[in-house]
Write a protein that binds this DNA or RNA. Structure first.
Lengths: 136, 136
DNA sequence: CTGGATCCCTTCCGATACTG
DNA sequence: CAGTATCGGAAGGGATCCAG
């Protein structure tokens, strides 16, 4: 139980805020949230839209987001079954941030790729260190 | 080579923008960037400030950030050796976003934790499905 | 002090098969 | 259609020892 005066500090290993950052940082969570930006989507729609995600990871990611109160899961008792996912208010509050992430990624992609090429070329030019004598 | 008219699309599996998102999503990258927000830091300072990070992960994370052009690495030829890390302009452009992430995490931590408790309690109440007959 | 190299255990994650 | 169950390979990540 944290007292009112204490702010959560992600630099402390046991602070829950680090778990929150981890979830946001999750590879698929960002893409799922972005896909739900325009409104609710069916399970299959999500799977189709997010190229390369496996059934397992999609389900697992959705469960995680649901558990954290970021998305809702609505089961329609019909045949065939239909399940809709949508962002909660909490989820929407995250949307701005995540959109910003996407925007940053797309606008600075070229810079990052250029930096990588430069770095890799530099590393290749480095001598193998004073020669590594086989140990012993 | 992408033509000018094509925007990077993180929903495509092979788009580089997804790699960028992955780096941001990296567990330690966010914390390292945040630590460098106030200016350059020595290797040891970073290690001390980010509770729970191992030497290996710190070094690995810094290399990744350096490769992507987000941080600079400055070696001072002294004894004992001293290495300073600092954000590049590109790194600074990311800082706003990452700070937003931290802010969101800390302000909504309580909501997330409450949602988890609710969800977990709900799951426990669920019946073990129509009974699992030992297969066959 | 700042790491590089290794060992090794854990977690992630994709592929596949099966159920309501 | 929307999952769950399971297996095995790949990657993540900590501990330790060593070098410049």
């Amino acid at each position: 139980m944290e007292s009112k005066g204490m702010r959560p500090d992600p630099f402390q290993r046991d602070c829950g805020s680090r778990q929150v950052i981890d979830r946001i940082g999750d590879r698929w969570s960002v893409l799922v949230v972005l896909t739900l930006a325009d409104g609710e989507r069916r399970y299959g729609e999500l799977a189709e839209h997010i190229d390369g995600i496996s059934q397992k990871m999609l389900t697992q990611t959705l469960r995680g987001l649901e558990r954290d109160g970021l998305v809702t899961r609505t089961v329609h008792a019909s045949v065939p079954p239909r399940v809709d996912y949508a962002l909660t208010d909490l989820g929407h509050s995250l949307l701005d941030l995540v959109s910003g992430l996407e925007a940053w990624a797309t606008t600075h992609l070229a810079d990052v790729q250029a930096a990588r090429v430069r770095y890799d070329a530099e590393v290749l030019r480095r001598p193998p260190a004073t020669t590594r004598p086989a140990r012993r």
